Simulated assay, not measured.
Amino acid sequence: MELFTVKSIGKVCVDKKGTRLKLDKEYIPALTNLEGFSYINILWWFDQCDHSDSRSKLIEKSPYKDSPEMLGTFATRSPERPNPIALTCANITYIEAENGVVGLAYMDAEHGTPILDIKPYTPSLDRVENPSMPQWCASWPKNVETSGDYDWSKVFNF
């Protein structure tokens, strides 16, 4: 088994002031010229699922209505996976580069979650015009902008 070193570059902050990324001081220069991008891809660590039970779960009961009963981990966005790495595309609301802060409209991570990396969202590399989807999820929203207004209770079993 090959081992890798992955270091957190900061933390997710979620409180009354909203959602934001707070970078460790040494990584603040990496925000240079991020202004102008409206979205970023954030790689983060599902730290609450970083244990042997979650890392060994490869098949699970589907949380989705109208889907197959069982799904492989790689067919889900589950936090329980061999390497608990998550990816979120988020809308930037403000940048305080001098303080290492990036404000976000929303992010599906808990307060204190470790951030692994930030990459600007660029349509030429990140956008797929006509992706194929299994029938059970083909009716889901087609983009991040409409996803926030979608009634996800129609999709999930909980």
Rank of each mutant, 00 (worst) to 15 (best):
R127Q: 14
C49H: 11
F37M: 10
E110A: 12
L104Q: 00
S139A: 10
R77P: 00
D24M: 03
P120C: 00
Q48W: 14
M107F: 15
H51W: 05
S124K: 06
G148L: 10
Y27G: 07
L71R: 01
K154H: 13
C137V: 12
E69R: 12
Y39L: 05
S147A: 15
W45S: 00
D66R: 15
W136C: 06
V102D: 07
V128K: 07
S132M: 13
E110Q: 13
F37A: 13
S62T: 15
V102N: 11
P84C: 00
E96P: 00
Y150F: 15
I115V: 08
P114D: 11
S62V: 01
V102E: 08
I42D: 06
A138P: 06
E96W: 14
S139L: 07
D47N: 09
A109E: 08
K142H: 09
E69Y: 01
R127I: 07
T73A: 01
E60P: 00
W136E: 13
S153A: 02
A105V: 02
S147P: 03
D24I: 12
C49I: 01
I95T: 02
N41I: 13
D126P: 12
N33E: 11
Q135P: 05
G148S: 05
E60M: 12
W44H: 06
Q135Y: 12
H111P: 04
Y94K: 02
T113R: 09
C137Q: 01
P134H: 04
G112K: 04
